Measured scan of single mutants.
Amino acid sequence: KTSLNPNDLGPLPPGWEERIHLDGRTFYIDHNSKITQWEDPRLQNPAITGP
């Protein structure tokens, strides 16, 4: 199984920011909706992941 390299996905969507949590995990901030999440928003785009 090959793992996706986030660098291959291009930039984050407008308004998003990638940060490192105190425990070392990466999380994502959506400044548009004022939410945070652990999942990379680029992986949730149907145009990238397919049907």
Rank of each mutant, 00 (worst) to 15 (best):
K1Q: 01
K1A: 01
K1C: 01
K1P: 01
T2Y: 13
T2W: 01
T2L: 09
T2F: 15
S3A: 04
S3W: 00
S3M: 08
L4P: 06
L4D: 11
L4R: 07
L4W: 06
L4Q: 13
N5D: 04
N5Q: 07
N5M: 14
N5P: 03
N5Y: 07
P6A: 15
P6W: 09
N7K: 12
N7M: 13
N7L: 08
D8H: 08
D8T: 11
D8L: 06
G10F: 01
P11R: 09
P11D: 13
P11W: 02
P11K: 08
P11Q: 11
P11S: 11
P11A: 14
L12H: 00
L12F: 11
L12K: 03
L12Y: 01
L12R: 00
P13A: 03
P13L: 01
P13D: 06
P14G: 08
P14Q: 09
P14N: 05
P14C: 11
P14W: 04
G15V: 02
G15S: 05
G15E: 04
G15R: 03
G15M: 04
G15P: 04
W16E: 05
W16A: 05
W16V: 03
W16K: 06
W16Q: 05
W16H: 05
W16N: 08
W16T: 03
E17P: 00
E17L: 00
E17D: 02
E17G: 02
E18M: 04
E18Q: 13
E18I: 01
E18N: 00
E18V: 06
E18A: 11
R19H: 04
R19L: 05
R19P: 00
R19M: 07
R19D: 04
I20W: 07
I20Y: 09
I20H: 10
I20K: 15
I20R: 13
I20A: 12
I20D: 06
I20L: 13
H21F: 04
H21Y: 10
H21G: 15
L22P: 15
L22Y: 14
L22W: 09
L22H: 15
L22R: 14
L22S: 15
L22A: 15
D23H: 02
D23Y: 01
D23M: 03
D23A: 01
D23N: 12
G24M: 00
G24I: 00
G24W: 00
G24F: 00
G24H: 00
G24C: 00
R25M: 03
R25V: 03
T26Q: 06
T26E: 04
T26H: 15
T26W: 02
T26R: 13
F27T: 11
F27G: 08
F27S: 11
F27W: 05
F27M: 12
F27A: 11
F27R: 09
Y28Q: 04
Y28T: 02
Y28D: 04
Y28L: 01
Y28R: 03
Y28E: 04
I29S: 06
I29G: 03
I29D: 04
I29F: 14
I29Y: 13
I29A: 06
D30V: 00
D30K: 05
D30Q: 04
D30I: 00
D30Y: 05
D30F: 03
D30N: 15
H31L: 12
H31N: 15
H31R: 09
H31Q: 08
N32K: 13
N32F: 05
N32E: 13
N32W: 05
N32R: 12
N32Q: 09
S33T: 14
S33Y: 05
S33Q: 08
S33R: 14
S33H: 15
K34P: 00
K34Q: 14
K34Y: 05
I35W: 06
I35E: 09
I35D: 10
I35Q: 14
I35S: 11
I35T: 14
T36V: 07
T36D: 03
T36R: 06
T36S: 13
Q37P: 03
W38N: 12
W38R: 09
W38S: 12
W38Q: 11
E39I: 07
E39K: 08
E39T: 11
E39V: 07
E39D: 11
E39Q: 05
E39A: 10
E39M: 07
E39G: 09
D40Y: 03
P41N: 00
P41W: 00
P41H: 00
P41T: 00
P41K: 00
P41Y: 00
P41V: 01
P41L: 01
R42Y: 00
R42C: 01
R42S: 02
R42D: 00
R42I: 00
L43E: 12
L43Q: 10
L43F: 11
L43I: 07
L43M: 09
Q44F: 08
Q44I: 13
Q44G: 13
N45V: 11
N45D: 08
N45F: 02
N45I: 11
N45G: 12
P46V: 13
P46I: 09
P46K: 14
P46A: 12
A47Y: 14
A47V: 12
A47L: 11
I48E: 09
I48Q: 15
T49H: 11
T49M: 11
T49F: 09
T49W: 08
T49R: 12
T49Q: 08
G50V: 12
G50L: 15
G50P: 08
G50A: 14
P51C: 07
P51A: 15
P51M: 15
P51S: 05
